[in-house]
């Protein structure tokens, strides 16, 4: 199926028709089964609503993500770490650690953009902070805030034509902060409550905010790293 990766010529027409027929048959079967099965089951909405007061937050999605099913979110941050490890520039912390920033190969930047970015960046940072805070009660949270922060980071590095040097120890700590804080909080609360990631009810809100704050920084750093990793190696075409 993927034997000819990135060939420029398309598959023969006959093969394409067979693929299309197969995909269509599969899809239509699924559609028919879903259609005749009728309305979806009520799911876990009732359970979530009953336990929501004990979760330390008011937004049910945040309660599911960071309390009821926090283990999934822990592993989700580990998925980000996998790709971070794969994309982080080669080199160890001892070598190549002279500079905090590495320069990007970019042309000159016009003064208008510099001025506009100077206005925009603080505003985005404030909005990101708001999104993180508001996640407890309304839609928002670590990923949204992290994505905004990363956007600010990309904007500023394009203006300054510099990227953080991800070989340095502080940058690496920033990349793993979310996962590290998550695991450590999970283990520490287990001393008090007896179960991994079982937050004491009174402190749940604070602990969730702490985890989300660390995750926001790590997600922002990771997305910035993805951008810089891909921007540095962009093929000249």
């Amino acid at each position: 199926m993927f034997n000819e990766l990135d060939s420029t010529k398309p598959l023969p027409v006959g093969v394409r028709w067979v693929c299309a027929a197969g995909a269509a048959a599969l899809t239509l079967t699924l559609v028919a089964m879903v259609f005749f099965a009728g309305a979806p089951a009520s799911g876990l909405s009732g359970e979530v609503a009953t336990r929501l007061p004990q979760s330390g937050v008011e937004n049910p999605v945040t309660a599911v993500l960071l309390n009821f099913r926090s283990y999934d979110t822990l592993l989700e941050i580990a998925v980000l770490l996998v790709v971070v490890v794969a994309l982080v520039p080669a080199g160890t912390t001892s070598a190549n650690s002279a500079d905090w920033f590495t320069s990007l190969r970019l042309g000159a930047v016009d003064p208008m953009s510099v001025g506009f970015a100077g206005l925009l960046a603080p505003i985005i940072v404030v909005v990101a902070g708001y999104l993180l805070w508001v996640g407890a009660s309304r839609p928002g949270g670590a990923f949204q805030a992290g994505a905004l922060l990363a956007a600010t980071g990309i904007l500023l590095s394009l203006i300054a034509r510099q990227m953080p040097n991800f070989c340095r120890l502080p940058a690496r700590l920033l990349l793993v902060a979310g996962l590290l804080v998550f695991i450590l909080v999970g283990l520490i609360v287990s001393l008090a409550t007896g179960a991994f990631l079982h937050f004491p009810q009174d402190f749940a809100g604070v602990l969730i905010l702490l985890i989300e704050a660390a995750a926001t920084l790590s997600i922002a750093a990771a997305l910035l790293l993805f951008y810089s990793g891909l921007a540095q190696t962009e093929p000249a075409r």
Binding site: L81, V176, L179, I183, S190
Partner: peptide, 20 residues
């Protein structure tokens, strides 16, 4: 059981931050 998940994750973090 939870140690089988948290310990290798911590090992991953340590070997990422301190690659010696």
């Amino acid at each position: 059981l939870p140690w089988l998940v948290s310990l290798p994750l911590l090992a991953a973090i340590v070997s990422f931050v301190l690659p010696g």
